[in-house]
Simulated assay, not measured.
Amino acid sequence: MSVVFWLGAGLLLFAFAGYPAWVLAQARLRPRPVALADVTPAVTAILAVHDAGDAVRDKLLNLLALDYPECLFDIVVACDGCTDGTADACRSIGSDRITVLEFDTRRGKSACLNDAVARARGEVLLMVDVRQVLDPATLRLLVRNLGDPGVGAVSGRLAFRDVDGGFAASVDAYWRYESLVRAAEGRSGSVVGVTGALYAVRRRLFPRLSDGTVLDDVLVPMAVAKSGHRVVIEPAAIAWDRPSQDARAERARKVRTLAGNYQLVRIAPWLLLPGTNPLWFRFVSHKLLRLAAPWLTLAVGVSALALAPRDGFYAACLAALLGCLGAVLAGKCSPAVARLLPVRLLTAYWHMNAYAARALFAFASRRRLHLW
């Protein structure tokens, strides 16, 4: 039991503190700056939607307002089995820079992305989602990183508005931590996953996605890195969003996303091979160890419970674990307690691990994860 305790605790500590500390040290001591250049390649924005309603019109107007030469920027929208007039809303804008692909049968996002990329004219693809709002300078900020021939893809940064406490504050706290790690990965080499709501990639490096692929925002950058190019972060390019206000709204999205990691290693097993995946250590440390976190936490708790009657140290560790759980429960009962930073972080940790545990069962049950 002591071996179980220390192995579990060590892996958890490395996953959430050791690896971030290592990559932050790499970014500080051995940075790899990007040779930024004011370039204006032809760009095609790629947007896949399902029953987006009025939101798709707002998104397209936001994209058309980006500060970029009109003759060098167009948009391809793929409507995946929409039943609410989404395609008509796209056409109603009346811009010849918008190409609408309308599919009667719902096939999933990855199939739509493949078809949309095939219709793209730009040498650079701007990958976006429908919900987030982009600042006017966003596209220029992204493509200046592609002025460096060694960079194959560049991710923007997701930031939240209207964080008013409660669960939303926990989501924001976790995302700030995650963004810190990703930024350090980009400064020291390549980031493992990009922000699906905002990233640019050279079209020639975009891989054809397997049907049903959930995490295109991980598979694409990993394929770019495999080709010998870097994947970096442009922190000034921001996609503005609003966090989920309650755990139920966040649960379905996160369970699907985390289950997508299991799917990822099934459809791209080369990710597990150190000799083939140049980001193997980062991928295992950043992605796979977090999937194991709920089971490692359970192992630490059970072993501490078994060892507590015989050793005061393990009794103290068990008390600390119970205290953390108590803080999460207290945050659910008191908004004032929930706003405290330690409680926000503990609440985020609790929910992320609950989602990761559910994701394993979701993947094992072979649900249609690729649908929206």
Rank of each mutant, 00 (worst) to 15 (best):
K59V: 04
L142Y: 05
R97W: 03
V100W: 02
I233C: 15
V231T: 10
Q263T: 13
F206D: 02
A159E: 12
F206H: 14
R32N: 06
S2L: 14
T44N: 03
A184H: 02
L72Y: 08
E185D: 03
V49G: 01
W295H: 07
G85L: 03
L146V: 13
T347E: 05
R121A: 08
E102N: 09
V337W: 08
H229D: 09
L279R: 13
R28P: 00
G228V: 12
A292H: 05
S303F: 06
S110I: 06
W240A: 12
D38M: 04
A327H: 02
A89S: 04
R339L: 08
T257Y: 11
L63E: 10
V128Y: 01
T83Y: 10
A21I: 05
L322P: 08
V124D: 03
P309A: 06
T44R: 00
T195V: 13
A137R: 15
A200K: 02
L325H: 11
L215N: 15
L141Q: 11
D311A: 14
A364G: 14
H351A: 10
F14V: 03
G193H: 11
V201W: 05
L291P: 00
A116V: 04
L205F: 06
A359S: 10
E102I: 04
G166Y: 03
L198R: 09
T44W: 01
S334Y: 07
H229G: 05
A316K: 14
V255W: 06
R30W: 12
D38C: 02
A35M: 10
